[in-house]
Design a protein around this nucleic acid. Structure first.
Lengths: 146, 146
DNA sequence: ACAAAATAGCACCATTTCAGTGCCTTTTCA
DNA sequence: TGAAAAGGCACTGAAATGGTGCTATTTTGT
């Protein structure tokens, strides 16, 4: 339960990778080949991130993606919202087909939980993930390659 | 994303209801009829909660369910774990088919997030939900009945 | 002893979401 | 003008989720 989808997982992985590459552009191909992720799926994810303005995309040879913002300014909350849509803990907590008073029994409390979880996700940034990732990118093997 | 399943939702609702009924036993039927929840599904959920020792079940006429523990001692974390299994944010974070170093790029960080979220869920108790629910059970209509 | 109340157990179906893929188009650099 | 790269579109298979029906077993009350 309460798990990330692959979209979020791959998205965060790709972002962490981009974060470790500085200002240079990385092609989707490089990313998926380096990290061993499914190509098309990641392409879609990167596109979403691009549309949302989290990464910058440049076409053509030499192009690719790069972060549009400092990793420390990119919260997990934002990334996940882009890739999975907004948080909705219980059905009645959001949009609102809450006809049965039942759901509402816990709506208020659940909303409070949701807020706290959202807070956790907001408190973590891409920089936090990258801090961990750095060691793995730059340490054992020069760079994981295909 | 990161949403409760219906199992958790209904489970929490039922527990909140039981919490408002003191020491008396409430039949599954009473619960679902009062709250307008799907019968069979809730019966399964109550059975799970009973197996896990969170509620007490008594068969036969006059029987039913009741909380086996003080609401303030029952964390959401526990309830949700019973009804949905353990938290697992990313695949590589748990059991371990983590062949691709990719997933591990964020594993450590994601695990930290998961811990924090688990912390949030542990910090909320059934009593918190009931506090909200009480008003709705005892206020507008004497008691929602069939 | 019997009937009714209640939980327990089993097997199944429908829908939605998720993960993943293929193919073609457009842009852009060399 | 050719190759590299992002972008767009439509589709498929698998799994999780939500939900239901029927029957068995236990227990109380009459």
């Amino acid at each position: 339960m309460l798990r990330f989808t692959k979209r979020s997982e791959y998205g965060l992985i790709a972002l962490a990778y981009l974060g470790g590459q500085g200002d240079s552009y990385c092609s989707a191909r490089e990313i998926v080949d380096t990290l061993g992720l499914p190509r098309r799926l990641c392409a879609e994810i990167l596109k979403s991130l691009s549309t949302a303005g989290l990464v910058e995309a440049i076409r053509g040879p030499g192009g690719g993606y790069r972060l549009k913002r400092e990793p420390s300014g990119l919260s997990l909350s934002e990334v996940i919202t882009v890739l999975e849509g907004p948080l909705r803990m219980a059905n009645c907590a959001n949009g609102g087909e809450c006809e049965k008073e039942a759901a509402c029994l816990i709506a208020t409390g659940v909303n409070r939980v949701a807020d706290d979880i959202q807070g956790v996700l907001s408190s973590f940034t891409l920089a936090d993930l990258i801090a961990e990732a750095q060691a793995k990118i730059n340490a054992p093997t020069p760079a994981i390659q295909v």
